[in-house]
């Protein structure tokens, strides 16, 4: 095998791993190979290392996000007014307010133990606030930090289950799920249960399940833990795509990078016992 063929083989494999359809991967690989021959250059010289080039090509061919939300832009999808949470005499947080509209991203930041996840649970409706008012749109997606997937089920089985909740047909649910996975650079293999996926891939499944129903509001609790660097960037890319597609997004995070891109910042501070 010549170095050029070796490079092409690696490109093809990397593209498929990144979620590009095999037929499209083959076409891109053949084109790249031919193009390099036409330019009279070695592909690794013209394009750089195959794996790195694959990442850029995969990003370029990823299908654009269809419009998510059915809501007109600017409609309020979540409103917190003076929300507080106390356990006994201990105040977790006090007087949190936020107005999140369709097409906006809000980040909830703060150190561990300052109630970020509690605030998200209040938005989900599983925890009652001690004070204040929560108003929220009905069609939501939710990705918990952990436990949001079943280790015994394959990705396709997850899609069918969540699809059933959202009144989608089985086939539609699976094809939508697979398409969303490819956008996160992952191509689910059938027959592999979630417990056998890597931590980062499980989280991708977790994220995809939260957007299966094209919700108006997506609530995410640090769902990128275990993502590698590229997927982490893809995750924020995805958050911005949701926003552009018209959904409201609330992300809980303890990382302070990438926050210049969000529309609202909710900072929680660890409060002293009173």
């Amino acid at each position: 095998m010549t170095p050029a063929e070796e490079w092409s083989r690696r490109l093809d494999r990397s593209l498929i791993e990144l979620g590009v359809e095999p037929a499209e991967a083959r076409r891109l690989t053949e084109d790249s190979h031919e193009e390099a021959r036409g330019a009279g250059a070695d592909p690794s010289e013209l394009y750089g290392p195959a794996a790195a080039y694959a990442v850029r090509l995969a990003q370029a061919v990823r299908t654009p996000q269809p419009r998510l939300s059915t809501m007109p832009a600017g409609e309020v999808v979540l409103r917190l007014s003076g929300v507080s949470k106390r356990y006994g005499r201990h105040t977790v947080f006090d007087n949190v307010s936020l107005t999140l509209r369709a097409g906006e991203v809000a980040a909830v930041v703060g150190a561990n133990g300052c109630g970020k996840s509690t605030l998200l649970k209040i938005c989900c409706g599983t925890t009652a606030p001690s004070g204040g008012v929560v108003e929220r749109t009905a069609r939501i997606g939710y990705a918990p930090q952990q436990g949001g997937v079943s280790g015994f089920l394959t990705p396709a089985e997850h899609f069918r289950l969540f699809g059933a909740v959202h009144g989608m047909g089985r086939r539609k649910a699976v094809s939508t799920g697979n398409q969303l996975c490819r956008r996160l650079g992952w191509r689910p293999r059938s027959g592999l249960s979630a417990a056998r996926l890597s931590g980062g891939t499980q989280q991708k499944l977790n994220v995809v399940l939260s957007e299966l129903n094209s919700p108006d509001l997506i609530l995410l609790d640090e769902p990128y833990q275990g993502f590698d660097q590229d997927s982490y960037l893809d995750f924020w890319d995805q958050v911005l795509k949701w926003r552009d597609a018209g959904a409201g997004v609330l992300v809980v995070t303890h990382l302070l990078q990438d926050l210049e891109r969000v529309d609202h910042l909710v900072e929680l501070h660890r409060s002293e016992d009173q």
């Binding site: 409706g125 599983t126 952990q146 436990g147 079943s150």
Partner: peptide, 15 residues
């Protein structure tokens, strides 16, 4: 016990 978190999640999104 093992399906608790998943069922909770499904209920949150409308199940």
């Amino acid at each position: 016990v093992s399906s608790r978190d998943l069922d909770q999640r499904l209920a949150i999104v409308g199940a």
